[in-house]
Design a protein around this nucleic acid. Sequence first.
DNA 1: CTGAAAGCGCTAACAG
DNA 2: CTGTTAGCGCTTTCAG
Lengths: 362, 362
Amino acid sequence: MSSPTSRSTVTGRKRQRVTIADVARHAGVATMTASRALNRPEMVSEELRARVLQAADDLNYIPDRAAGGLASGTSLALPVLVPTLHHSVYVQILEGLQERLPASGYQIMLGSTEYSREKEEKLVEVFLGWRPSGIVLSGIDHSERTVRLLKSAGIPVVEIMDLAVASEQSQALDLNIGFSHAVVGEAVVRYLASCGYRHVAYAGTLTELDPRSVRRIHGFQTALMRLGLPHHLIGRSDLPSSLAVGRDLVTDLLHRHPEMDAVFFANDELAAGALFECQRRGIRVPEDLAIMGFSDEEIASHLNPALTTVRIPRHEMGRLAADLLLARLAGTLGAQPPIDVGFEIVQRLTTLAPPHLSQEPS
Amino acid sequence: MSSPTSRSTVTGRKRQRVTIADVARHAGVATMTASRALNRPEMVSEELRARVLQAADDLNYIPDRAAGGLASGTSLALPVLVPTLHHSVYVQILEGLQERLPASGYQIMLGSTEYSREKEEKLVEVFLGWRPSGIVLSGIDHSERTVRLLKSAGIPVVEIMDLAVASEQSQALDLNIGFSHAVVGEAVVRYLASCGYRHVAYAGTLTELDPRSVRRIHGFQTALMRLGLPHHLIGRSDLPSSLAVGRDLVTDLLHRHPEMDAVFFANDELAAGALFECQRRGIRVPEDLAIMGFSDEEIASHLNPALTTVRIPRHEMGRLAADLLLARLAGTLGAQPPIDVGFEIVQRLTTLAPPHLSQEPS
DNA sequence: CTGAAAGCGCTAACAG
DNA sequence: CTGTTAGCGCTTTCAG
């Protein structure tokens, strides 16, 4: 700050990060050999490899992923976009992915779209800047720009939780693992009708925002119309789903449609809330009102009475998505048609079939 | 495949990625000006900025984060390590972080440690390779190497969900937001004892792996001993927690300690499972057995009877962690002592105080 | 306020 | 199997 001819005795002010060059020097090999020893062990003689590994360990070497990514044009980042973490379905899918991906060196980057195509587009844009190896999206409904960006990125894309059927003019971007929500809606109606219920309602939250809800409702109403049953019993809420909203939803439906004898909720949380509400009000389930949930969370089987619901293979979807992605990245998997993981109606006690129906063929 | 003198009419085989140089050229400025227009708008004249922005938009420019990171020595990646996504506590903390961080341009990279210090160390090592701007860890117990790596990385670290009190010889790495689990254990005992319960048990899963459980149990037992009450009623399971495990845990405790009159569970899920089990077996709660949970999930207040539990500010912890991190990154926050967000015992119906006690001073 | 040069740390592509 | 040579795309200097 003062002495004029200050000798530049700047003895390494900044703690130098240890680079692969340091490792190579320490091991007495070329930089490239060190790189290979670390990343493609099979290309290096056992002796050198050992020396390099030793050196890396000695120096506490941590490879710089940014540099690696820049040089190789790709990174081990793997963005996963879910609409929300609030629904345990997505958490479980994430768990499934988390089980496999990190083990192969990939890093999950998490993004929540809040059911908004605009947010999804923004996130895709940001994530693409990381030059990820691939990407996982929820659903098959994306903005045009999202589709364009993804296509030109030329990386594997996995869409989960919905099924892109060609006939529905919704083309899968690449890999696709899910099930048809329209078919779920239809199946539920058919099941409920077979139990003898005639005034069947659908109840959910934010139903317009979630294309999967829309399709479920559509299948639901179509099936109802086909059976000549009323299809206008719909309960909606703008709040994110919760037990409390489930209570409100039944309360409201019961008030507006006293004739209602069954409700299909968009998820088990709402259904559980409704069940709690019925218990409090002395409404007998299923005698006075049948209740059905969606996704078969653990709580469904523990409730009293146990909740009839639709089981979907959440965890499996995550694992399968990871496996396909990994296979594709390894180059062992080509184009694939959409994979339907299906679903299953789990009959429990909240929709007990009336006795006179139990002999009907299903 | 045949013609010998095949002219190299390789008209741009590989789709050239658009770089900032392209943008600059398109806008008629130097590369550096384009970079500044994009990242430090205030350093560039309004006119040029507009031109560059336009060009970037025209060309669909997506900045390469790897290149940016390499050049600048840091990235907008922000690793968050949680023990598991299975407990909704961590999911909600994640939601809190997710609310703030992406809005400031940071990308959350997710890691699950499975309550293992070794896995944590591995993850820290990998994530550090991304040259993140900061990092969020769960808990204050880390391997020596983890601590060393983190210290020498010189980035902000936030430890959440536990409190590093100097007296406990556990020094916070940097920022720390949480609460004392030992104090929770003590407070619960004091509360339960004030209700008149004498044979109080603790029940949890994987208790040895989770240092926070260990501290909670320790506080719990210490308080019990101080009151001259039995402190050997402990229920353990090696399975991850679930409603089913909650059922098994009470069943087992009831069998081993018929005199038990209250149980404190490690989380609300276990407590709810236990409650369901008691209902099924005709054990009256709280008359025959009091039940208490931990973390105050939404379900606690909806159960029948509603569950007494310990409320912890999960969401807030996530948001606060994000805010502190952001402030630190912005350079407006220096060293901070650990922040105790506290907790609160929420009395509901599963631990109704016996009448003869209600007049005692709390 | 704008520009030119240099290089971040690593790996692809070639030679030996 | 090992080494050399060039960059990857961006931002940090340092000059205008």
